[in-house]
Amino acid sequence: MEEKNLEKSSNHLIHPDPVLNPESSGDSKFTHEKFVFKPAKIEKITVESPKVKSFYLKANSLDLPLPGQFLMVWLPGAGEVPMSVSDAGGGSIRITVARTGSTTEQIHKLEEKGTLFVRGPFGSNFKLDANSYLLVGGGYGAAPLIYASKVLSRAGKKGVYAVGAEDSSELLFTHEARKHGLEVYVATENGSLGHRGLVTDIMNDFLRRFKFDSILTCGPERMMYKVLRQGLKLGIPVQVSLERYMKCGFGICGSCVLDPIGARVCIDGPVFDGKLLLKTDFGKWKRDPSGMRVRV
């Protein structure tokens, strides 16, 4: 019975798009050309923190991503990485890139009018049909949340944006969140701003003071695991945006699979219903490029 429920819920998550739904009788409208890179001109670059820059890409030949979806971004000679989208609209897509490895280091060296090569958007998105939201971000994981906050604010919804980082210089998008009408709380590990410690330390405080009917989280996996546990304890649904090493980004290579249910972060995710994640190795194991399981 347990197994059956699980299958049902994972099936449900897989394809919001009826075209890809396994029960749909029609064939997919997609062709292999969906997996071709398209050039995207960099219109503007903003420095968000010492390690993070945002790139505004001209989106004329790209589909606009929904909050939570990601793009595969290729810089010839430097490699290709999945990137979450921190804003989209008005003919432009903003990606927020943390310098974490050699590919992102090369991307950071680009200037305005430069070009990135992009495919996507891929993956699932945040469901934004509740009324009162808690958004919990850590480090560069705040990127998809700030895009969600824009959509929420346009729909007239209320929320709290709680974000943590090691130092105040690394806190992302706090001004933008205020502009979107969210209450902002911050935590820094070195105590340079807000609560000294982790953002999850102060979560119980908001959970007592406000009534939320949905939690969105993105950031370091251990942080998200705590957020998920705390949220579910109070019966609040939690949507978690996961990051995993990916090769293809569109569901066939298997690099980003979560055991033991076989959910793929790139196509069944990256945004998952937290309850489903508790049936996986989320918070415990991930895979390296060889497919070897390593501790989170």
Binding site: T31, H32, E33, K34, F35, V36, F37, M72, W74, G79, E80, V81, T103, R119, M246, K247, C248, I252, C253, S255, P289, S290, G291, M292, R293
Partner: peptide
């Protein structure tokens, strides 16, 4: 990466036999 790309009527991949052993 890139290890896989779409073309007119298919995909081209060079994953490189990745496996954990």
């Amino acid at each position: 990466n890139p290890t896989i790309v779409g073309v007119r009527a298919g995909l081209i991949n060079a994953i490189g036999l990745s496996n954990p052993g």
